[in-house]
Computed example of a mutant assay.
Amino acid sequence: MPLSSLSFQSTSDPAEAKAWFGELVAAEPVLMSVIASVTDGLVADPGRYENPRWWAGIDGSGRVVAAFMRTPPFPLHVAVATEQQGAALAEHLVAEGFSLPGVGGRRRPVEAFRDAWVQLTGGSARTVMELGVLDLPRSPRVPFEVSGHYRRAREDELERVSRWAQDFADAVHETPRPAPRLDSHVAAGRVGFWVEGGEPVSMAYVSAANGGVTRVSGVWTPPALRGRGYASGLVAALSGERMDAGERCMLFTDLANPTSNKIYEAIGYRRVGDDVEVELSLS
């Protein structure tokens, strides 16, 4: 597609963004999972992020063919785009005078965005994380015994849920980032604990389904409790519960973390794509 045939519309209204991207969510629910769930969250709670913005790439026939989102302090998220469309957005944002701390999403369009951004601004870029995109094509299983059991988190456990969500965010990201608020997830039964001896020992949560796809996130076991299979039991149970409800499961995994990669593979997850997060700076 020639760059001249692609135009961009932007909005700070989550309801408008949701309407723009409905067809893309239905067609590409895995690629659109982050934008879909975050946008839904902002429709319900507009104050969740300050100054959010979405960009839709529009082709010559007026169709939305590319989707991008920024929810500060997080980097720009590239969901659905070709390499050419990623580079075109970089050109558009530089021309508009936007400043960005980074960009993340599907590898090839993100790298095209990065290259165009660096060339146009004279800045620099550094890859800070490489992620595998995994889905679950069959019922999950744990190939070994794990002591304890799965249950949903209760609303009187929000303090622990919030603390562990922030612990996960602190461990995963180089720079401080706020964990998502999970009140609505707990109320909807989408936060799970693995419990042993009456005490939670591991936690994970899932997004509300969009396009039939739910995303497993925030898998956290406190360091002193690791190595006992709790995360394996939890992710398998939580994923199985969502599959039984008719949802398709996906997740992101840090490719530099062999432990989590082995856990997910043993449960039955398979790698279907690659994401990357890039830090941008003007130097």
Rank of each mutant, 00 (worst) to 15 (best):
F252E: 08
A204K: 06
A231H: 05
M203F: 07
G227Q: 09
V219G: 12
G227D: 09
D183E: 15
G197L: 07
H173V: 06
V191G: 09
L234S: 07
G240V: 08
G229Q: 02
G233P: 09
A179D: 09
R226A: 10
P180D: 13
E241A: 12
W220M: 08
T221Y: 04
G197V: 09
L225C: 04
V161S: 06
V161D: 06
A179V: 12
S202H: 08
F168P: 02
R226L: 10
G192C: 07
Y230C: 04
R160V: 10
A245C: 01
D244H: 01
Y205M: 15
R152W: 02
L182I: 04
E241I: 00
E199M: 11
V186K: 06
M250N: 05
G198T: 09
R190W: 01
V186A: 11
R163K: 14
E174M: 06
D170G: 03
L238I: 13
G227P: 13
V201D: 03
E241F: 00
Q166G: 07
S217P: 03
P178T: 14
M203H: 09
E159H: 12
A171N: 14
R228S: 08
A231I: 09
D183T: 14
F252N: 13
S217N: 13
G240D: 08
R163D: 13
D156Q: 07
V172G: 02
D170Y: 00
F252C: 08
L158P: 08
V161F: 01
M203W: 08
T175A: 15
A208F: 04
A187P: 02
